[in-house]
């Protein structure tokens, strides 16, 4: 409500008060109200009243948010969904590693038989075996990529914990904030900063680029 509307509303109320209580002069009432407001010395100023209203709205908003978060069952997300997803991905790593080792053993067996093969056949088989060895490197690459995803899931889990803490314990908020904040400095990248695992194709540089980069130091 604007100040002008408030003024108009107040005047109407005073006029109505005067009609209902003809024995009381509305001016006396105004004097009493002004005296009360003055004695409150600003405690009930319009600014403070507005602030109290805003805080009340904020409290209502927080309460609603708490109820909505509770309905999402974040405890299930942190206790069940994320750990299960992480375990599944770890299982993928284990399964591909086992499969790769089985392939390697089989191919090694074949390679060991090349001595008994005619030279031309042997060379062809060795070439094929070499390609299998090269291809088996996929397990290392996919394993590292999956580990990155597991790490991301763990970070999400921590964020959810922090969110829960924000509606409960201040210490949890501080811990989450401290973990999230990384100081920005001009210091050289640390070993940990540099260990990012396999890059997405658009972010990686090729072997040729690497060779050129190395050569640029000479």
């Amino acid at each position: 409500m604007t100040a002008r509307a408030q003024q108009s509303d107040l005047e109407m109320r005073l006029a109505e008060f005067g009609r209902r209580h003809p024995g009381i002069d509305p001016k006396d009432l105004v004097d009493v109200v002004e005296a009360i407001m003055t004695s409150a010395d600003g405690d009930l100023s319009s600014v403070n009243l507005k602030l109290y209203a805003e805080i009340e709205q904020l409290a209502i908003y927080i309460q609603r948010a708490r109820e909505e978060i509770a309905s999402l069952r974040p405890d299930e997300i942190t206790a069940e969904h994320l750990p299960v997803a992480g375990e599944e991905l770890e299982a993928v790593i284990g399964a591909t590693e086992n499969a790769t080792n089985t392939i390697m053993e089989s191919v090694e067996t074949i390679e060991n038989l090349t001595d008994q093969m005619p030279r031309e056949v042997s060379e062809t088989v060795v070439d094929a075996v070499t390609q299998v060895y090269e291809a088996c490197g996929f397990q290392d690459i996919t394993g590292q990529r999956i580990k990155k995803v597991v790490t991301t899931l763990t970070q999400i889990e921590e964020k959810v914990h922090a969110l829960l803490g924000a509606f409960g314990q201040d210490s949890q908020i501080d811990a989450a904030r401290a973990k999230a904040e990384k100081p920005k400095t001009d210091a050289p990248l640390s070993d940990a900063d540099l260990m990012n695992g396999p890059q997405a194709a658009e972010a990686a540089i090729s072997q040729d680029d690497i060779d050129a980069l190395l050569a640029s130091f000479d």
């Binding site: 990248l189 890059q199 090729s206 690497i210 190395l214």
Partner: peptide, 21 residues
Amino acid sequence: AESKTENVVAAKQAGVTNYIV
């Protein structure tokens, strides 16, 4: 598998002889 420019630079500065991605 570390194939970013800063990785190669860091390795070279540390004295790597060659680098295979």
